[in-house]
């Protein structure tokens, strides 16, 4: 079974995340780049279930700047078999539509039975790419799964729906996305790190995928304006001396909040 895991490099959310006020692009230098946590969970799911699947091959597909190779190698060290890295200067600042076209083309080129994505990335938090990719590939999409069961020709799971919980299923090939209720990714061990050095890494450009990032026939989403909100500052801080509950009640009532 050919499993593709979609992983993204994102600015570490524990650091301060910045947008460039001129270009509106995420400022890559502002904080350390890491593998998106939700992507690691997706890979962990693939690695866990691969054990019980016949001939499972796990390929990580990522569209990211050239500098991301080091970050992406961690996925190989965790246990993925192969990396397909789409890196192209012309894709900097790609909107959702272009990103979906690129990833769908790379997935098709690689060949797939199951695509596993995160439900929501940590930086763009669009939460729509997997749906777009499924539409472009012409396959079913089961979104926001909290449990997943993969068999030779079918994927099923529990979906955290609006207003309830559903069980869903789809024949393969299919796209699924998982939520952060899945366990965190494993830490690569020494053996994994050494093995990663020998694993295949394919680097592609938009042209390799026959996509023209500058094509004018498709509408793109563009930023018109970006502004920074003034940071919030701290107000009153009291230490409880046995009457903080009373004081807080007072504050809430004075401010008509209670």
């Amino acid at each position: 079974m050919r499993i593709i895991v979609l992983m993204k490099e994102v600015p570490d959310t524990y650091g301060e995340r910045k947008l460039n006020l001129e270009t509106g692009l995420a400022e890559r230098g502002a904080s350390e780049a890491v593998l998106d946590e939700i992507g690691e969970r997706a890979l962990e799911l693939a690695l866990t279930q691969a054990a019980s699947l016949e001939d499972a091959e796990i390929t990580v597909v990522s569209m990211a700047p050239e500098t991301a190779t080091a970050t992406l190698r961690k996925a190989l060290a965790m246990g993925a078999d192969k990396l397909v890295h789409i890196a192209d200067e012309n894709l900097v600042g790609a909107d959702l539509g272009l990103t979906a076209e690129v990833l769908a083309a790379a997935i098709r080129r690689t060949g797939f039975d199951l695509v596993i994505a995160g439900n929501l990335s940590t930086d763009g938090y669009g939460g729509v790419l997997p749906a777009m990719i499924a539409e472009l590939l012409g396959v079913p999409y089961a979104s926001a799964l909290t449990t997943v069961d993969i068999s030779a020709d079918r994927v099923s799971g529990t979906r955290e729906a609006d207003g309830g919980v559903m069980t869903v299923a789809a024949p393969l090939p299919a796209v699924i996305s998982i939520t952060e209720r899945f366990p965190a990714g494993r830490f690569p061990n020494f053996k994994g790190i050494m093995a990663a050095k020998k694993k295949p890494v394919e680097t592609l450009t938009a042209a390799d995928l026959e996509i023209d990032p500058e094509g004018l026939e498709t509408p793109r989403s563009i930023m018109l304006a970006v502004s920074e909100r003034p940071a919030r500052s701290a107000g009153t801080k009291i230490v409880d001396e046995g009457d903080a509950g009373e004081k807080l009640a007072e504050f809430l009532i004075q401010n008509r909040l209670a």
Partner: peptide, 23 residues
């Protein structure tokens, strides 16, 4: 911008090649 809403928006935008603005 609900779970179902995003699934529909993503598929619809991809199908009709429309620009998508999220959230």
């Amino acid at each position: 911008n609900s779970i179902d809403g995003r699934d529909v928006a993503g598929r619809f935008a991809a199908r009709t090649r429309s620009a998508l603005a999220i959230d």
